[in-house]
Design a protein around this nucleic acid. Structure first.
Length: 947
RNA sequence: GCUGAAGUGGUGGAAUUGGUAGACACGUUGGACUUAAAAUCCAAUGUCCAUUAGGACGUACGGGUUCAAGUCCCGUCUUCAGUACCA
């Protein structure tokens, strides 16, 4: 019998689908385990061999946990809103829903052929109205909540209104806009409804606000920072301007501290936690208010700065504002006006990128104005400089040149005095920024103090003056939540007199309207501005035609859509109860499934999806919908499988191509060609190449040894490098089990590693050997027939089996799937050599292998006479008794060098081993009559004699 | 610059956490089978010396601790990833 993997694999895939083998059970007595993959965006290109890596790992773990008696939830779905489908729609007019559905079909077929044990009955699609109903619902929950800093949690907005009605906002310690004014209960009750709403918006966890965005007029859309290169759009090279737009934002900054603290409680990789910490960017210091020395003018407020080094305040010899700072135009003196304006213009022209790349050049301008030092009352000149960022802190710094490198460089450049306030430190060459070694001098009441003491004291003194207080600053900014796109979740929002109103949750979902064009409107409105049926009738509670808008009972709906991360920030909880139309998930479901036990996905989501999801989870926790404030207990980042591009070398200016080894003799250009035309020894199929692209049709090739050898380059797998390997081809040629084993065998899960199809023969021939082990040839050289007997297993075979059980169990628990593939190979080789046919060995062996190679395992399992799926079988129990060896070959070392080996019983005591070794002839020979100083015996390992 | 991870044969990678370095696989070489190829099987394969027996060296580099170091400590170098004037 031949190992016919194609037949076997499609047979079992069909069986699993028909029998719903992997459907998670309803809550019951079994312990639960939740294994989750980051769901894919279904792109038009389909899957390449790199994509399933994490899915294979999670599938192995899920199957293993089923063998271990857990009720496993292992769902899959699609993050199906997104830009590519929309751009395709713009080009072709095809509705994104149609292309998305087609792409999902391809994905599903490709996923199915790899044999994943997903519970497809729980599939979610973020673009499905039944799903995004709940995304809209969460948005409304956020809108009707505020964050109380005193309790450190989200609370209902109605409670806030009660406080306002009773006592105003003076005692409310909430996460809110910086510019929120103080009002009394009388003030509040005197406000019009609109004025009240305006103020509440400053407290809500999602709010409308004017935000600066990168606007590209030619493309009619907002661009993200990474879509801009050198000040122009990446696509098309159109100019981009900074523009203030009214946008929805999420008040994630309210959760900064909890997002930081929560990292301590979860088992995620250190590097990932570290990048989240950096992103949150907590810094502890003080805010200090400097009075502006006005000449006739009257400034109500001074200049607020944030500093982490308030202890160095006596060293402040100037102040620097960001050029964009709002006070700049007010304080600049007439004499300095021209210079300041010129400088602002220059910096405004410089793109963000230029400013970042060019850190060395020092530039700035003096405003002519002075501030007053809070303690010495000395005048301090106020400068502007682009090294101060408008977006961080207050956009202003007190510059202490002796204690900060950037301030030092700025002071040197503009000849500003650099007073030294450190004891015993020379600052003639560079600034001194070592907090730990700081002793303050020349600083009045701070003299002689350490950084810690001085900081405490100066904050106290500033508070006495009313000019400062201790403050913690976070770099984390609120997240802009509006996109000028079509293919995203519509907001459940309509506008009455410009104020946003939520649609009642019972009328959700608000489905995406049909539009003629997917582009922005001519007046610059988002694509939903093209919709003709996009108004809200509050009487009928229905979406109606725009023509009916009367601003009395029919109102305009929001034209923006939500960003990509909206749909992915709670999907893991929705999987627990995906069909529920009445709630996002039932209490019963969340109480049983709790949280994700194991989450596998790429590290590129570190500061996006993974941060936003934690934020929403904490919010859901505050509102009592979930019972953990972290959604994933453990997270593993799988590495990427890279492509190995093939390169041919064109001799410059000709149509000749030179083989890799000869290219050094020519002036050549590199051209990437399709890797599928190159064989395992890097030799190219010239005929195929000629047909591939017209430019090669009548090309000449300069060969080495009659062959054209390509160059290789390891890089990301991508269509544009022609290095994509399609899993369809691999499954067809070698089978899904080979693909699964090989992806694991390639190296540690977390690591980046290149794909090399040639190596797959190793695992493929292992599967053939495994097949053969169950189909041993009978005497006389017949074709192998299925041959498993009830024979009592030999000691040797038992040892092989239990060694394998132990190793594989350890490997899976430690997620080192690569080494267990080797373990299987060794086991099969040993059992083949032992001519093992015993069912008592071969049956449990199959269970060990089945998480990795489920199809072949199911087939052989069935041949063994089992009628159920192997996935219901219990994981074999390791029994140490089978591992006991009576003796072992000890390496005998002298001063750490191994000289010979000795067979010794393992149950011998250390003393007896020592005696036996010393009595040995070879030992005596080595010692040449001398007495050993010490004999070290490590049981079962080594004997070392120190002479 | 800072932060994080890592440097082991021709290649991907193992190494029971301080105990025979290079498991397993790819590749390469030789052999068997075959008209031939594919497939399969067997053998060799870290480097150097030696006909063999065997020996020396060897985990980026330089030191150290230890009977014993890929593993621990100190210093240096290199690579990859993230981040970037964060006051």
């Amino acid at each position: 019998m031949k190992y016919n993997f194609n037949e076997i694999e499609s047979k079992w895939q069909k069986y699993w689908a028909e029998h719903k083998t992997f459907k998670a059970e309803a809550p019951g007595d079994k312990p639960k385990y939740y294994v989750l993959d980051m769901f894919p965006y279904p792109s038009g290109a389909g899957l390449h061999v790199g994509h399933p890596l994490g899915y294979i790992a999670s599938d192995i773990y899920a199957r293993y946990k089923r063998h271990k008696g857990f009720n496993v939830l292992h769902p899959q779905g699609y993050d199906s809103f997104g830009l590519p489908a929309e751009q395709y729609a713009i080009q072709t007019g095809q509705h994104p829903a149609i292309t998305t559905a087609e792409n999902i079909k391809t994905y599903r077929r490709q996923l199915d052929q790899i044999g994943f044990s997903f519970d497809w009955s729980r599939e979610v699609r973020t673009s499905d109205p039944k799903y995004y109903k709940w995304t809209q619902w969460i948005f409304i929950q956020l809108f009707t909540s505020w964050f109380n800093h005193d309790t450190q949690k989200a609370e209902d907005i109605s409670d806030l209104i009660k406080i306002f009605e009773a006592e105003g906002n003076a005692n409310v310690n909430a996460a809110c806009d910086d510019h929120t004014e103080t009002f009394s209960a009388e003030d509040w009750n005197g406000f019009s409804s609109e004025e009240q709403q305006q103020r509440l918006l400053q407290y809500r966890l999602t709010y409308l606000a004017e935000t600066e965005v990168n606007w590209c007029p030619a493309l009619g859309t907002v661009l993200a920072n990474d879509e801009i290169v050198n000040g122009v759009s990446e696509r098309g090279g159109h100019p981009v301007i900074r523009k203030k737009m009214t946008q929805w934002s999420m008040r994630i900054s309210a959760y900064a501290e909890r997002l930081l603290q929560g990292l301590e409680t979860i088992d995620w990789t250190d590097s990932l936690k570290e990048s989240q910490r950096n992103w949150i960017g907590k810094s502890v210091g003080a805010s200090v208010s400097f009075k502006i020395l006005d000449e006739g003018k009257n400034f109500e407020s001074g200049i607020d700065v944030f500093t982490t080094r308030p202890d160095t305040i006596f060293g402040a010899s100037f102040m620097t504002l960001a050029p964009e700072h709002e006070l700049v135009s007010q304080i600049t003196t007439p004499e300095q006006k021209a210079e300041v304006e010129a400088y602002i213009e220059v910096t405004a022209k410089r793109s963000e990128r230029d400013r970042m790349a060019d850190v060395k050049t020092i530039s700035g301008a003096f405003t002519g104005a002075y501030a007053e030092h809070p303690f010495t009352k000395a005048p301090i000149p106020i400068w502007i400089g682009d090294y101060v960022l408008a977006g961080y802190g207050t956009g202003a710094v007190m510059s202490v040149p002796c204690g900060d490198e950037r301030d030092y460089a700025f002071a040197k450049h503009f000849n500003i005095p650099i007073p030294n306030i450190f004891e015993g430190v020379d600052i003639s060459e560079e600034a001194f920024a070592d907090k730990e070694k700081t002793i303050i001098a020349n600083s009045d009441f701070l003299n002689g103090m350490s950084y810690k003491k001085a900081t405490k004291r100066v904050i106290y003194e500033l508070e006495q003056l009313g000019q400062g207080k201790g403050k913690t600053n976070y770099r984390l900014r609120d997240a802009v939540f509006s996109r000028q796109r079509y293919w995203g979740e519509p907001f459940p929002v309509y506008y009455v007199n410009g104020m946003p109103q939520m649609i009642d949750t019972e009328h959700l979902p608000i489905a995406l309207p049909e539009v003629e064009k997917y582009l922005p409107t001519e007046t610059g409105e988002p694509p939903l501005g093209n919709a003709t049926v996009w108004a809200w009738d509050v009487k009928q509670c229905a979406v109606v035609s725009n023509e009916l808008i009367d601003n009395e009972t029919v109102f305009p709906l929001e034209l923006n859509t939500m960003p990509g991360w909206a749909g992915s920030s709670q999907y893991f909880n929705r999987y627990m109860d995906p069909g529920n139309d009445d709630e996002i998930f039932s209490k019963e479901a969340i109480d049983y499934w709790q949280q994700v036990d194991l989450y596998i996905g790429g590290s590129e989501h570190a500061t996006g999806h993974l941060l936003y999801s934690r934020f929403w989870q904490k919010f859901m926790f505050d509102k009592g919908y979930v019972n953990h404030d972290e959604f994933a207990k453990k997270l593993i980042n799988q590495g990427m499988i890279l492509g190995t591009s093939a390169i041919v070398y064109r001799v410059s200016g000709t149509n000749q191509y030179v083989s890799n080894a000869l290219k050094k003799d020519y002036d050549v250009e590199e051209i990437r060609i399709d890797v599928n035309m190159v064989n395992a020894s890097d030799e190219i199929d010239i005929e195929a190449l000629k047909k591939w692209q017209p430019q090669f049709e009548d090309a000449k090739f300069i060969l080495e040894d009659g062959k054209y050898i390509v160059g290789r380059e390891v890089e990301k797998m991508s269509k544009r490098w022609f290095n994509v390997v399609n899993p369809d081809n691999i499954c067809e040629q070698y089978g899904a089990d080979s693909l699964r084993l090989y992806e694991m065998f390639l190296g540690p899960l977390e690591q980046y590693k290149p794909w090399n199809t040639a190596g797959i023969t190793g695992v493929h021939s292992f599967l053939k050997k495994l097949w053969k082990l169950y189909h041993s040839s009978l005497e006389g050289g017949q074709e192998g027939v299925f041959n498993v007997t009830d024979e009592t297993p030999t000691k040797e075979a038992l040892k092989t089996l239990h060694k394998t059980i132990k190793k594989v169990e350890e490997d899976i628990e430690n997620f080192s799937f690569n080494t267990s593939v080797s373990t299987f190979m060794i086991a099969v080789n040993e059992l083949t050599a032992q001519k093992c046919t015993s069912k008592a060995i071969l049956e449990p062996l199959l269970i060990l292998i089945s998480p990795y190679a489920p199809h072949i395992a199911e087939e052989l399992w069935q041949k063994l006479g089992n009628s159920n799926s192997i996935s219901t079988a219990d994981f074999p129990k390791f029994e140490a008794s089978h591992m006991v060896e009576s003796s072992k070959n000890y390496p005998i070392s002298f001063n750490g060098k191994t000289r010979f080996t000795m067979e010794l019983p393992l149950d011998m005591s250390k003393e007896d081993v020592e005696a036996a070794v010393l009595a040995n002839e070879k030992t005596k020979e080595q010692l040449q009559g001398r007495e050993p100083k010490k004999v070290i015996v490590v049981p079962g390992r080594i004997v070392n004699i120190v002479g």
